[in-house]
Amino acid sequence: MKFSLSLAALACGLLACSAASADTLKKIADSGKITLAYRESSVPFSYLAGAGQPIGFSVDISNAVVDAVKKQLGRNDIKVELQAVTSQNRIPLITNGTVDLECGSTTNNTARGKDVQFAINYFYTGTRLLVKKADGIKNYADLAKKTVASTTGTTNAQVIRKYNRDNNLDMDLVLGKDHNDSMLLVESGRAAAFAMDDILLFGLKANANKPADWDVVGDSLQVEPYACMLRKDDPQFQALVNGVIGGMMKSGDFEKLYNKWFLSPIAPKSQSLGLPMSKELRDNLTAQSDKPAV
């Protein structure tokens, strides 16, 4: 009897495991929809360039995942719903099931890996500073006893806070609710600099009313990977997402997509960021690693 109960318990455990592993795909099949997260100002990854739907490098990757989901489920009628997220709420909206996939400007690190799963890393960046050229700020030492902005819920806020403490700069850190809000703090004179991932700063500069008035300065404080984010313990969906991104990296489609968003004119002002692919990212086209930052 004990042996039979043990077998039954094992069988239930295996069934539960199987159900959990197919959770996102089953959820999509049952509901007939997939919900994608997007950012409003993470240029050129995921952003609004007008009144229409979000566009960007990460949006194109998300759409490729949707195509793969439809193919795997044999369902062309799967609807796509879009959910705006911020740095602060993006992880909770993944974990509570509101959002199925978040591809934007999210750093893959070990702390976040306790709550969510990351796909293959698709970008590498570091914290630098967006400043007004006229202010003459060149590096972090120039910000001693000044106010510096960052964005709520980002790793950059933690990085600049630690750098400030370690170097006794006595900076006052203020946090914007999103990247546009943080840039506005500098534009309005309430902060001397905006500390954020350099690629996002280049994007904000390119789309500013007067791009020539702004500069991205300072040493890169760390190198961190970006990756798509999904729910934990969902190997089936993770394999699908990784298959899409890895397949693009192998076929050359990923580099074409990179060139489209980082080396060509982009909306809304037809400005090019002019950023060649980094060595870290080029190496990962082959390695296809999802290794997190510490």
Rank of each mutant, 00 (worst) to 15 (best):
A206S: 14
H179V: 06
A191M: 03
D181C: 09
K260L: 07
L201A: 13
W214P: 03
A227D: 02
D197N: 11
S182C: 06
L240Y: 15
R190F: 11
P265T: 01
E187R: 12
S264G: 01
N180K: 14
D198F: 14
K260S: 11
D198N: 08
E187A: 15
K205T: 00
L230T: 11
I245M: 08
L257W: 14
N209Q: 15
A191G: 09
A208R: 05
A193R: 01
R190H: 12
A193S: 04
A192L: 07
Y226I: 01
G243W: 02
M249P: 07
W214T: 00
K250A: 15
F194M: 09
A195D: 09
R231Q: 15
V223L: 07
Y258M: 02
S188D: 15
K250M: 05
V186H: 07
Q236C: 00
W261I: 01
S182E: 07
M229C: 13
V217G: 03
W261Y: 13
D215V: 00
L201G: 10
N180G: 15
K256R: 11
P265A: 04
D233P: 06
V217M: 05
L201M: 09
G218W: 00
K256H: 06
I266W: 09
K250T: 15
K232C: 03
S264W: 03
L257G: 07
G246S: 07
A192H: 10
P235F: 00
K210G: 02
K205S: 02
G218E: 04
N259I: 00
E224N: 10
L200R: 03
F202E: 10
E187K: 10
Q236M: 06
A195K: 08
S251R: 08
